[in-house]
Amino acid sequence: MRVFLNLLWLSILFWTFAMVLWGLFRFYGLESEDGVTISADFREDLKMKNILPLFALAGFLMGIFYAAVEFAFDKFNSKRRSIGLTIFIKTIVYLFLIIVIATFMIELGANLFGLKKNNDPGWWRHDKGFWITTLYFLFSSLMFSLIRIANEKFGKGVFLKMLLGRYKNPKEEKRIFMFLDLKSSTAIAEALGHFKYSQLIQDCFYDLNDIVPKYAAEIYQYVGDEAVLSWPYHRGLANNNCVALFFAFQNVLKLRHSYYMDKYGLVPEFKAGLHGGELMVAEVGVVKKELAFHGDVINTSARIQAECNKHNVALLISKKLKEDLNIDSNYSAKSIGNVLLKGKNAELSVFTIFQG
């Protein structure tokens, strides 16, 4: 629900602004343009006090419908359907919505302001204004999609900070990192073969992506059969998000037990290491620009995850992070003791977390 509400308010804000802007592009100053002849009736219709509220309302309605369609496609559309087919289906749906909303707005404008425009059945087929508005909508939709993609790639709110140049120079941030890795990956790859194994990793990460937004996580990168997730420190602690995500992912894999058994003959299991603290973040590269995190937090998180097999546990967490979490009745913590992580000179106290 939170994912939809976030998408909804962004969609309403974007489309209200976009449609008001289109109203200005389309009509502002039109009656004073040289060579443009406007009838007396239509000249009255062109008053901005009549035009802009209608376009704002159209944008508001479009924002609601657009968010609903995008959310439905994100949630129910087959992840294996080609991008081209998905875009085609969306285009048909949006064309229908534009026709419905435009017809409604014409009728509303006629009743409230006396605007005179044909809205008989099929009016839109030969209406040049409708098709130029539709073209503007498709362009705006592409812009909104690109903004969403950039926001998802860099993390919530990070894209705007990059536009403002915040990370041109390294900045210190406090974050939590999780290294999530497939158990027995080498044996599974040998048993399945590289093609089937690649499909397995795809399916696992599709399932992971379905729950990432629910726990306010950001996917930093995928490395083979490993996913690296991150949270701003306060967001990872809230509702035990950084721990809850791991168990939610486990539950999703269990619920899809039949699917994985039928397709691969096994149910994948993952292990994870968690640690948090101060580190540096900066823009790197020109081609394929991205944010990179530098610091001991990342290295320690990876080393903690590597200890899972040695201690035969699914989740390990540093003592410092465990103490900052509010471990409630849903979880229990057990000390593993002090361990000497690979490449470290000093031992680190780690705990395993389990449900119950």
Rank of each mutant, 00 (worst) to 15 (best):
C242Q: 14
P232I: 01
Q221N: 09
L245W: 05
A227G: 07
A227V: 03
A248Q: 13
G236C: 09
F205T: 13
A244H: 04
N241V: 10
L200R: 05
L229M: 13
C204N: 05
S198C: 09
C242K: 12
E218W: 04
C204W: 01
F247A: 11
A217F: 05
S198H: 02
D203L: 03
Y222A: 11
Y233W: 15
A216R: 14
E218L: 10
F246H: 03
S198E: 03
I201D: 01
Q250Y: 04
A217W: 00
W231N: 14
Q202P: 02
F205Q: 10
Q199I: 06
S230Q: 14
Y215Q: 06
V212L: 03
L237R: 13
V212T: 15
F246N: 03
G224Y: 02
V243C: 09
Y233C: 15
Q221C: 07
D225I: 02
W231E: 12
F249D: 04
G236N: 15
P213H: 04
G236R: 13
E218D: 12
A227K: 03
G236P: 00
N241A: 11
S230R: 11
L208R: 04
S230T: 15
D225C: 06
I211L: 03
Y220G: 10
C242E: 12
A244M: 07
P213S: 06
S230I: 07
A248N: 10
Y206L: 07
P232F: 02
S198V: 10
L237Q: 14
A238K: 15
S198R: 08
E226Y: 01
V243K: 14
F247Y: 10
